[in-house]
């Protein structure tokens, strides 16, 4: 069975498709949107998070670190050299304040499924994160979920191999498809890639006879322009299976997460 590389499994999510859902947040994304509010989901390596406000500078981590990657200036600061760290995890396990966290873990299809089934009584439904990069894991998970008559969604940035997208979409009830910017040049500037392939994939999925929800983050000063809003409407009109358009308001909560990633 395939292993998935995930940030977290969040139970009782109520805004990611209909009803109460369990969301598997996959780690690794081909885009790097400048407004991203889950930056821990971009990189496909294990990362360390450090919660500065919780840390009491007790020095336990520095004492335990075999690589001498951590230095405490008592009462003042904690200096960490990421290049020395070998991710042994000793500091994380032993931090009495839970100020350190490993972001990213592997999970098997059966473990993820077990976690999902715990809330089966609450849903008609359930779903996932950036699935194309972890196609094998996502595919097996979706198939398993369907075996248990769980309603399935994927949310995708739409950037990747068209055949993989179509096979994933074929195992979903709803595809939540991000449409971030209609202008390809601006799209490249803000997310790192242009939207030509994304548009092509969207059309291909539309032919798969699966319900599509367009998810459009609206970022003040960037894409809250008339041309983009018209662009959303135009692309929705081209699609045969677009059921809803979600305009998603920008919020700054993600900024707190950038500071903590080491």
């Amino acid at each position: 069975m395939a292993l998935g590389y995930i940030v977290d499994i969040q139970r009782m999510s109520v805004r990611d498709g209909p009803g109460i859902r369990t969301v598997i947040f996959l780690k690794g994304c081909p885009l790097s949107c400048i407004w991203c509010h889950n930056p821990e989901g971009i990189d496909n390596h294990i990362e360390l998070a450090y919660y500065k406000d919780i840390c009491t500078l007790c020095g336990m981590c520095a004492d335990l670190c075999g690589q001498k990657a951590i230095e405490i200036e008592p009462g003042n600061a904690r200096n960490f050299q990421r290049n020395k760290c070998v991710l042994c995890g000793k500091c994380i396990e032993n931090c009495p304040n839970a100020a350190l966290e490993k972001v990213g873990r592997f999970v098997s299809v059966s473990d993820a499924m077990r976690e999902m089934l715990r809330d089966k009584v609450f849903y008609e439904e359930s779903g996932g994160g950036e699935p194309e990069l972890q196609h094998e894991f996502s595919m097996q998970l979706l198939r398993e979920a369907r075996k248990h008559h769980i309603h399935t969604c994927i949310e995708t940035c739409g950037y990747g191999d068209v055949n993989l997208f179509c096979s994933l979409a074929g195992n979903c009830d709803i595809v939540l498809f991000d449409w971030k910017e209609s202008n390809p040049i601006l799209h490249k500037g803000w997310t790192g890639v242009d939207n030509i392939l994304i548009r092509k994939n969207l059309r291909a999925i539309d032919e798969k006879d699966v319900d599509i929800v367009l998810r459009c983050p609206i970022i003040p000063g960037l894409n809250n322009r008339k041309e983009h809003i018209c662009g959303i409407a135009a692309i929705a009109n081209e699609l045969a299976h677009c059921k809803e358009i979600h305009l998603m308001t920008y919020h700054p909560y993600g900024q707190s997460k950038y500071a903590r990633l080491l």
Partner: peptide
């Protein structure tokens, strides 16, 4: 509306 749905689902469960 989604919220009401969620609340109802919680109670059903």
């Amino acid at each position: 509306e989604e919220g009401v749905e969620a609340l109802a689902a919680l109670m059903r469960g």
